[in-house]
Amino acid sequence: MQNDLFTYTLHLADNNLLMGHRLSEWTGHGPMLEQDIAISNIALDLIGQSRNFYQYAATLRKDSATEDSLAYLRDTREFKNLLIAEIPNGDWAKTIMKLFLFSTWQFYLFQQLINSSDKQLAEIAEKSLKEVTYHVRWSSEWVIRLGDGTEESNKRIKAALEEVWPFTGEMFLPTEYEKSLLNTHVSVNVSDIRNSWNSKVKLVLEEATLEYPENKNTWMNTGGKNGVHTEHLGYMLAEMQFLQRAYPGCEW
C-alpha cells in the first residue's frame, strides 16, 4: 500500500518533470518572443509541480531519498510517466498537440485528485489545477489557430494529431498500483475521466477544423506507467541527469 502510494506519486511527478523538461527545450527557440516566454512559463509550472510530488514521494521512503535523487538518479525503468510526456517535441505543432492532449487529461485528473483521501496529493492537485487551467486554454487556442490557419499550419497540426494520438490510450488505462489505491480513495480512476476528456478534445478539434480520430481504432502505445518506455527517454535522461551522475551531490 505504502509502496503503491510511492509509485503513484512518482507517476504523477514523472509526468510533470518530463513534459516540463521537453517544453523547456523550446526556451530560446520559440517562434516568437511571447510564445517562447509562454512555453517556458508552462515548463516552469510543470517542473514546480513535479517538485511538490517528488518532495512528497521522498517522505514516503525510509531511505535517504530526496526530490533530487528521485529526479536525477533513477534509470528509465524506474520512471512511471506517460509516454506522451517523453516523446520528442518535433515541430511547434506537435509540441502544441502533445501539450493540449496532456494538459486536458491533467485538468480532469487533478479535478478528481482534489478529492483524494491522501491529503498531500489533494493539496498538490488543488494548487496545480489553477496552473493547468491556463495550460489548457493556451494550448487549445494554439490548436485552433493552427488548424484553422493557413494551409501549411493546418497540414502540420493534422500530422501532429496523427502522430500523437496513438500515445493517448495509456492515459485511461489504470495500472495495478492505481487500482490498488482506488479502494482507499487515494488514486483517481482514470477510466472515469475519459468521457470528459473526449468531449473537451472533440470540441477544440472541431473548432480547429480537425477531424476527431474516434472511429479509427488506432493501435495505442502503452507501457510508460509501468516503466516500459520508448527509446527517447534514455537520451533524455542521459542529458538531464548528466551533471548529477558525473558530479554526485553537485550544487550551485
Partner: peptide, 13 residues
Amino acid sequence: VISQFGSTACKAL
C-alpha cells in the same frame, strides 16, 4: 491581452 504568460509565472502581458 498579448499573452497569458509574462515575464514571471504570476504575470500576463
